[in-house]
Simulated scan of single mutants.
Amino acid sequence: MESRYLTNEYQARNDHEPGYIYLMEAEGYHGLIPGCYLRRCKIGLSRNPQLRLENFHSNQPPCNIKILTTVYVQDMAEVETQLHQQFKKCQVKGLAKSREWFDFNPLQMPMVRYAIAKHDIHIFTFSELPFKLILLCLLGLLSVGVIAGRLTTQPVTPLQEKLKVN
């Protein structure tokens, strides 16, 4: 059987298509800079982040890696490039093989999560809302309607009639 790599059938991977952007963390990494605890994280792209994580566990140095967040995007390569550029100052220096690893301090982690989350194209469905929240909102709207109805049906006072005439 002839390999497709030996023939001209091989097609380069196209990352400019829908998929996931993930934020993974190397657990147990304690990058201590005077007064600062750093978290070593990887911002990457994948069509299957869980499979990517399994590949990390079988191919990477002896440290645990966990997925912190994933978002679904229309153009994986474009979003990944934007995020890498945005956090370029946090990039781990000296890694010849990868520029996808970053050291984030505790103040930067919420910014990273927000920057990733704003690219999410998740389509909202009402089934994701808790039933109690929906019920509470409906009761609130009903209350506002009752109050508004009472305010508009109050009897007119003599002073209000005088003001209407003028």
Rank of each mutant, 00 (worst) to 15 (best):
R4A: 10
L6E: 10
L6R: 06
T7D: 06
Q11S: 14
Q11H: 12
A12H: 15
A12C: 14
R13G: 00
N14R: 07
D15I: 07
D15P: 07
H16A: 14
P18E: 01
P18N: 01
I21S: 00
M24S: 06
E25Q: 14
E25M: 11
A26M: 14
A26P: 00
E27N: 11
G28I: 00
H30I: 08
G31P: 02
L32T: 04
I33T: 07
G35F: 11
L38K: 10
L38E: 08
R39Q: 01
R39C: 02
C41Q: 09
K42A: 01
K42W: 00
L45F: 03
L45N: 01
R47C: 07
R47P: 07
Q50P: 03
R52D: 02
L53I: 02
E54T: 15
N55D: 12
F56Y: 13
P62M: 13
N64Q: 08
K66W: 03
K66F: 08
K66Q: 14
I67D: 03
T69Y: 04
V71D: 00
Y72A: 04
Y72G: 02
V73N: 00
M76N: 04
E78S: 13
E78L: 15
V79S: 06
V79M: 05
E80G: 03
E80P: 07
T81A: 15
Q85S: 15
Q85N: 15
Q86S: 08
K88I: 14
K89I: 03
C90W: 03
V92G: 09
K93V: 07
L95E: 05
R99A: 13
R99Y: 10
R99G: 14
W101N: 06
F104I: 11
N105Q: 02
N105E: 04
N105V: 07
P106G: 01
L107G: 12
Q108G: 07
P110Q: 03
M111E: 11
R113C: 07
R113I: 15
Y114M: 10
Y114N: 09
A115N: 02
K118A: 00
D120M: 02
I121C: 06
I121E: 09
H122P: 02
I123P: 04
I123H: 13
F124Q: 06
F124N: 04
F126N: 05
S127C: 04
S127Q: 09
S127M: 01
E128W: 05
L129R: 04
L129C: 09
L129G: 01
P130N: 15
L135N: 07
L135C: 08
C137E: 09
C137R: 08
L138Q: 03
L139N: 06
L139T: 03
S143Y: 03
V144D: 11
V146H: 12
V146W: 14
I147A: 10
I147C: 04
G149W: 08
R150G: 12
R150S: 05
R150N: 12
T152N: 05
Q154D: 05
Q154C: 09
V156Q: 13
V156R: 08
L159I: 00
E161V: 00
K162M: 01
K164V: 06
